[in-house]
Nucleic acid binder design. Structure first.
Lengths: 192, 192
DNA sequence: CTAGTGTGAGACAAGAATGTCTCACATGGG
DNA sequence: CCCATGTGAGACATTCTTGTCTCACACTAG
């Protein structure tokens, strides 16, 4: 029967294809559909049966990235404890998705004309709310807008992912480098 | 005679074409040679006479970006005064080139295979030296490597340029947002 | 006026990537 | 055993971009 294996087998295959495509496109953002198919171990025909075209594939990757980000936001429990600790948890949880994120980050720069996925707006709102909470509690300075702190976080994650990829930063330092710079800045301060 | 107007007229035309191409590609990094030519007010044939191909154009833009960065580094007098003030001057001087920089920044991500222009290495070295000077003087914390601070600066400049482009950050705040986050971080501190 | 030079417009072929299609093969259930 | 479904391989047309070429036109110096 067609409605049997369809729901379960296709799902895991689709998941596997998406993971492979993410891993490949993270390293080579201009990879061909043929290369993506080979990386996933399937033929171009099958790839094209699952994703109508390159656009559909990128959209699916976007949805995957959004889902992973939302899962990271959930796991980070942004509402609990101090805002600083929440930011630390957020970066820790989001690190596995950093490669995919940096790919989507630059990819979105050339989708400027079209409307962006509503999921990004939701993520932006949640992260912005975290920074705003930190400002309201007196923990964060108020002269940097939550919108900018959110964008800066994305930019630092992308820069961190590329730095690790280029070997300029040790993979183990990824979290600390981002969190410490974002929270504490470069200037030395007296430990209290 | 041909060897007369060649040195002077071609130079200014080339400069104009490069500026136009930079302005266009900053907004739409996938612009066609035809679009680049139209943006510069010349025909595709003439564009192709000045730049052998798209690669040559990008290389020339890269050289332009490097030259502007080096000019900014010179103007910022990185060796004078405190490292913090030097960083402030650097961001201020580099702001006009931020758009071009962010374009080249993402463009270089997909040149991963090829060797990068030696100019970038020189710039990295100069900026790294600035952060190292701040560390040696006790001004900057030593747990963030100069290499990471340099990459983070690039990432923040790109993020700032895109944020301004998307209207998420006011253009007037560009310098402050970057400098304050890079130097001071998000955490509030007592003013001394 | 005339020759030389640079430019714009457009035709043209080459190449790459995409989207679509067909066909043969394997596998798994009836 | 037989059939249906999904897959791989490959051919094919299409589209887009690029690089090259030719030709006509404007301008300018001699």
């Amino acid at each position: 029967m067609s409605h049997m294996g369809y729901g379960c087998l296709m799902a895991v295959d689709r998941e596997h294809v998406l993971r492979s495509a993410a891993a490949l496109l993270t390293r080579k953002s201009t990879a061909t559909m043929d290369e993506v198919a080979k990386a996933a171990g399937i033929s171009r025909a099958t790839l094209h049966r699952q994703f109508a075209g390159r656009d559909a594939l990128v959209r699916a990757l976007e949805a995957l990235g959004i889902a992973e980000c939302e899962a990271a936001l959930d796991a980070a429990r942004l509402d609990e404890g101090s805002a600083s600790d929440a930011v630390r948890r957020l970066v820790r949880e989001i690190e596995p998705a950093a490669g995919l994120l940096s790919f989507l980050y630059t990819e979105n720069q050339l989708f400027e004309g079209e409307e962006q996925n509503a999921g990004w707006a939701r993520l932006d709102a949640r992260v912005s709310a975290l920074f705003r909470r930190g400002q309201d509690s007196g923990e964060f300075r108020i002269d940097l807008t939550p919108a900018w702190l959110t964008e800066a976080l994305y930019g630092l994650i992308a820069a961190g992912a590329w730095s690790v990829h280029d070997g300029k930063v040790a993979a183990n330092d990824f979290q600390n480098m981002i969190v410490e710079l974002l929270l504490g800045g470069a200037t030395r301060r007296e430990e209290s």
